[in-house]
């Protein structure tokens, strides 16, 4: 028996919109810890890891660990039928091949049940160890989204370089090149507007902008994005989901041959 009630149902809608273009189908795992997902894109270049902790739900019942294979496009279609203020409850049962999404209006005067078919998905689960990063950049998520969008109109790849001067985003394309530098800037009044750079050593890596732009669909989930860089590892682009968990995107770099 599975019953997860989320007062702020819009969070789940936003999560789906953030990942459904990167990953078409995935297993959602429910355990005592929370509702989670790990899935790679079809080319195994990018990975999304989502965690919504059980404490963040208004009601969380998960009798046994359960994995639900879901087509994310279909789930997104169903969640789009929930109103922006609706409470969403996810219901499932062992041994059935469906999951039910229940939408309740704030005033409790409209209750909708949407039942969706589950599917068997053979997904490869990767072990992602905790790691030390050479540089960690925290910046306003909207600013990062703007940079990726702007650079995406010029080139296909972005070189992200962190030095003690700041974080530099560089691209080159047929029409020319672009270079954007963000310096550390701490705002005491509005910490979410700050750009904070923790650098152990300088690092410079190249990534496909197509993926970065896909990750920025999570911008509505958090005002701040954290970008962790190491020359030995895929970059991690993390959006914290207030009081609930996170959505993390991992992206393998492009390497000079």
């Amino acid at each position: 028996m599975l019953e997860l009630r989320l007062i702020q149902g819009s969070l789940l809608k936003k999560v789906l919109e953030a990942i459904k273009d990167l990953v078409t189908e995935a297993n959602f795992d429910c355990s005592a810890t929370g509702f989670s997902l790990q899935a790679m894109d079809s080319s195994h270049v990018a990975l999304v890891a989502l965690l919504l902790r059980s404490e963040g739900f208004d009601h969380y019942r998960c009798d046994r660990n359960l994995s639900m294979g879901i087509n994310l496009n279909n789930m997104s279609k169903m969640l789009r039928c929930a109103g922006p203020e609706d409470i969403i409850t996810i219901k499932g049962d062992d041994g059935t091949d469906t999951v039910t999404f229940m939408f309740e209006s704030q005033k409790q005067d409209k209750i909708s049940d949407f039942e969706m078919k589950l599917m068997d998905i053979d997904s490869e689960h990767l072990g992602i160890p905790d790691a030390e990063y050479q540089a960690i950049v925290r910046m306003p998520s909207a600013e990062f989204a703007r940079i990726c969008k702007d650079l995406g109109s010029i080139g296909d790849t972005v070189v992200i370089s962190v030095t003690k001067e700041g974080v530099k985003f560089f691209t080159r394309g047929d029409v020319g090149s672009a270079n954007i530098v963000c310096r550390q800037n701490t705002s005491v009044d509005k910490p979410e507007d700050s750009t904070v750079i923790e650098m152990n050593e300088p690092v410079s890596l190249t990534f496909a902008l197509r993926y970065m732009n896909s990750f920025t669909k999570a911008t509505t989930l958090s005002e701040v994005v954290t970008i962790s860089l190491s020359s030995e590892l895929p970059v991690v682009v993390e959006y914290k989901i207030a009081e609930m968990g996170y959505i993390r995107f991992y992206l393998a770099p492009k390497i000079e041959d």
Partner: peptide, 14 residues
């Protein structure tokens, strides 16, 4: 020229 690495170059299955 640049070559795209994949995640399996960095992380193991399991």
């Amino acid at each position: 020229d640049t070559r795209q690495k994949t995640l399996t170059n960095y992380f193991c299955s399991g």
